[in-house]
Design a binder for these strands. Structure first.
Lengths: 192, 192
DNA sequence: CCTGAACCTGAACTCCGGTTCCGAATATGG
DNA sequence: CCATATTCGGAACCGGAGTTCAGGTTCAGG
């Protein structure tokens, strides 16, 4: 893994942080497309140093994404504090999506297929899923979400919104449509 | 452009078709990820021949995508024949999405950012947009879609569905949720 | 301070996939 | 059937991006 063991030399620890910071910044802005040389330059280091701290590019990416996942999990935990189930749900939904909007790498991880290298993140992911599941259940039980709404549906909805994160705030419109519903009120609403 | 002019030698025309067929097949299955050598092999030709008929990989991809766009436009035209505005809308929606499901290259073109090389396709795209706009308007006028539904929203919805085309038929569930609405009936439906 | 281990550098290497190019093969018109 | 323009084949070429490695440099403990 990438787990930093005991006792890094002072400069090594410092450089490691610099790499992480530079990578976070660049990956957030341009996702997988940034190249190792850029990260090195931005960190004021040589490429070799990146490889001293991370096995390869994917490991570095995984580290960054892991961070985001922790943040998101905290956010979910906070959302679950809300007494109103609907508020909790909306807080989670928008928090999640705003994070995704702000970070192309996060989006990349969420939209792409499962990578075996994301394995380090599995634990964090499980935590997040558990909280999501609870929040969804609360909203369903309160009748604020349709009775058959599942936690998997949260994934569907968010993937849909993320696919609309091109340029302007189109994704907010998308979410609005999903939340309010597409149908008009002028005719039978039961036919599908 | 890629427009085949007058009088190709017989074998040239035949090979051109072979290239197109092979490319269509492979691009449909694996999108942009297929490589020129594979297409050549599948067509039973040398790579050089691909480049005799198409300037580069993107031109070939554009040709394939152009084909799909024609097909889709025909499909939209057919959908517009339906007297019931909702049926027309649904037919368009599902036809579009099933085409996308069957063709990774099409999805690639639809989900990715605007490529300058897709310019050949612009005309076809305009046709399709016009028809979509008409179908949406009909559904709105009939009160089957919410009054402020725009043709742009069709794009949002379909992008959302396409983002859920991973493996199983998850996208159908997504569309179902969007069409039927997310909200439960147990509580105030007016808060957002 | 001195020394060895840990660390850093960045030019060079490797791999990968698109693209080129020219001799060989083939179609077509006379 | 011949001459010639067209077309084909596919090995070689090339540029880009990740990765390595042979030194030089810096830290930390004695």
């Amino acid at each position: 893994m990438t787990a930093p063991v005991r006792s890094l030399r002072a400069d090594a620890r410092r450089n490691r942080e610099a790499v992480l910071d530079a990578a976070a910044e660049l990956f957030a802005r341009r996702g997988d497309a940034v190249q190792m040389d850029e990260i090195a330059e931005r960190a004021g280091l040589g490429v070799g140093t990146l490889y001293r701290h991370f096995a390869d590019k994917r490991a570095l990416l995984a580290a960054i994404i892991g961070r985001r996942f922790e943040a998101i999990t905290g956010l979910a935990r906070a959302a679950d504090e809300a007494e109103d189930p609907w508020v909790a749900f909306e807080t989670l939904l928008y928090g999640y999506l705003e994070s995704a909007e702000a970070d192309a790498a996060f989006r990349f991880a969420l939209l792409g297929p499962e990578e075996p290298s994301w394995n380090d993140i599995a634990a964090e992911k499980t935590d997040f899923s558990a909280i999501t599941e609870r929040i969804v259940r609360r909203a369903v039980d309160a009748g604020r979400l349709r009775a058959d709404f599942r936690a998997d549906d949260f994934v569907l909805i968010t993937r849909g919104a993320m696919a609309n994160m091109t340029g302007a705030g189109a994704w907010r419109r998308h979410v609005m449509l999903v939340l309010e519903g597409i149908r008009g009120s002028g005719a039978a609403a039961g036919d599908v």
